[in-house]
Computed example of a mutant assay.
Amino acid sequence: MLRSGAGHPDAARSQASTSRQLSPEEEAQRLYATLNDYLLLEHKAQPRLCLPVESENGEVTTGARDGAAHVLRCLKVWFDLPADVLINAINLFDRFLTKMKVRPCHVPCITVSCMNIALEQYAAETNTKRSISVEELVSISQSACTAGDVVRMSRVLVDKLSLAGGARAATALDWLRLLRAVLLLHAPAASVQEEELVQLLEIVSCDAACVNTRTSELALVVLYYKLEEQLAEWSRASEEGGALPEDAYVLIDFARQLQAHCNMSEAALSHARTRVRHVVSRYERCEARRDQRQRLVWRLSERTLKVLRPTDRLTSLLPTIEEQHFAVDATPTRNRSGSECSENEETSDWPRSPVLPVYCDN
């Protein structure tokens, strides 16, 4: 959807190596040219969902949409995929639900298909070979569909979303990286780590409350959510006797200029800020209640246990050994059959219960 020039997401990556040789004026011109290109085509990649909270006539609800987004994030974590794939897959899912009326039974297949298309587009952009097959996506996602279903659904998505050209739209992640680069150009002292911003954007993108927010507004709100911590730290330092850094005034002026340049109204920006804060606070409360080490329980049947390790013919009991104190040579011989095991039932490494506890650090 974006032309291959200064505004294309690939152009920002390909010119990253040459940006060090540019002067600050040339770098600013390149970034603002990309910003203008993003603004021209922002409406084409903007979802406009209107999903009910409860399904009345077999419609997809906001809960189903959030569930699909979390499945995509689980796939991203499982396969260790970059954030570009996740944000693009969520954007494809929301845009498809905006154009098409979908039945709830088709949501799992559409979810995996969006991840499939996002993987194809990322491999084409980075000129790398795709390492995850469709069969692996279907197996890990447990979507109850076949690889052929995903391939056919992917063709439908490509046709309905006009993705035949291979180019993708600028997502909120592209906007976030662009705004961060522009911010650091004006205020180098602003400490905003890209990893923290990307993680925050993933949390916000998985919630349906922020799905209809403009990608530029969402990226700006996420960026300033982290910058508020920096501004609060500078304010505390100034109250203790230190002077407020000049970059603090630059940040405030930068926000006003960017808001005017992108035609962001104060009401829309305030509404987006409220929704982002609500989503992040709810996520932090859930994380605070959850233990650092999560205990997962796999329930297996007796038949599955026998397939994994045949223990039906093993026993933990041994015959009693009678000791002879007076006649050393009269010690009885010890007979053991191959069907007996010397393991104690309480200290056995294989549980006798069909419930197997599994621990993970995530």
Rank of each mutant, 00 (worst) to 15 (best):
residue 1 M to D: 13
residue 4 S to A: 11
residue 4 S to R: 13
residue 5 G to L: 08
residue 8 H to I: 01
residue 10 D to A: 13
residue 14 S to V: 11
residue 20 R to N: 09
residue 28 A to K: 14
residue 33 A to L: 12
residue 34 T to W: 09
residue 38 Y to W: 04
residue 40 L to N: 05
residue 45 A to Y: 01
residue 47 P to M: 04
residue 48 R to Y: 04
residue 56 E to P: 02
residue 71 V to I: 12
residue 77 V to H: 10
residue 81 L to H: 00
residue 86 L to K: 03
residue 89 A to R: 00
residue 89 A to M: 02
residue 92 L to G: 05
residue 93 F to L: 15
residue 95 R to Q: 12
residue 100 M to P: 00
residue 100 M to C: 14
residue 107 V to N: 07
residue 113 S to D: 06
residue 113 S to G: 07
residue 115 M to Q: 08
residue 118 A to S: 13
residue 119 L to H: 05
residue 121 Q to S: 15
residue 122 Y to K: 11
residue 126 T to I: 05
residue 126 T to N: 12
residue 139 S to F: 12
residue 141 S to M: 03
residue 141 S to D: 04
residue 148 G to L: 09
residue 149 D to F: 03
residue 165 G to L: 06
residue 166 G to H: 10
residue 171 T to L: 00
residue 173 L to I: 10
residue 173 L to V: 07
residue 174 D to F: 02
residue 175 W to G: 00
residue 178 L to P: 03
residue 180 R to T: 06
residue 182 V to A: 05
residue 182 V to Y: 01
residue 183 L to F: 01
residue 188 P to F: 00
residue 188 P to I: 01
residue 188 P to R: 02
residue 190 A to L: 02
residue 199 Q to M: 03
residue 199 Q to R: 09
residue 200 L to H: 06
residue 210 C to S: 12
residue 212 N to Q: 07
residue 215 T to K: 08
residue 216 S to D: 14
residue 219 A to P: 04
residue 220 L to C: 02
residue 228 E to K: 13
residue 228 E to G: 06
residue 229 E to P: 04
residue 231 L to Y: 03
residue 234 W to C: 10
residue 234 W to I: 02
residue 235 S to R: 12
residue 239 E to W: 07
residue 246 E to W: 02
residue 247 D to S: 12
residue 253 D to E: 15
residue 260 A to W: 07
residue 263 N to V: 10
residue 264 M to C: 09
residue 264 M to E: 05
residue 269 L to R: 03
residue 272 A to Q: 06
residue 274 T to L: 07
residue 276 V to R: 03
residue 276 V to Y: 02
residue 278 H to G: 14
residue 280 V to E: 00
residue 281 S to H: 04
residue 281 S to A: 11
residue 289 R to M: 11
residue 289 R to F: 09
residue 290 R to K: 09
residue 296 L to W: 06
residue 298 W to D: 02
residue 298 W to E: 06
residue 299 R to L: 07
residue 302 E to W: 05
residue 305 L to F: 02
residue 308 L to E: 01
residue 310 P to T: 05
residue 310 P to I: 02
residue 311 T to I: 05
residue 312 D to T: 10
residue 312 D to V: 07
residue 315 T to M: 11
residue 321 I to R: 12
residue 324 Q to M: 05
residue 325 H to S: 09
residue 325 H to L: 11
residue 326 F to I: 02
residue 328 V to G: 03
residue 329 D to R: 08
residue 332 P to Y: 01
residue 333 T to M: 12
residue 333 T to K: 14
residue 334 R to M: 13
residue 342 S to N: 09
residue 342 S to T: 09
residue 344 N to W: 10
residue 356 L to W: 15
residue 358 V to Y: 08
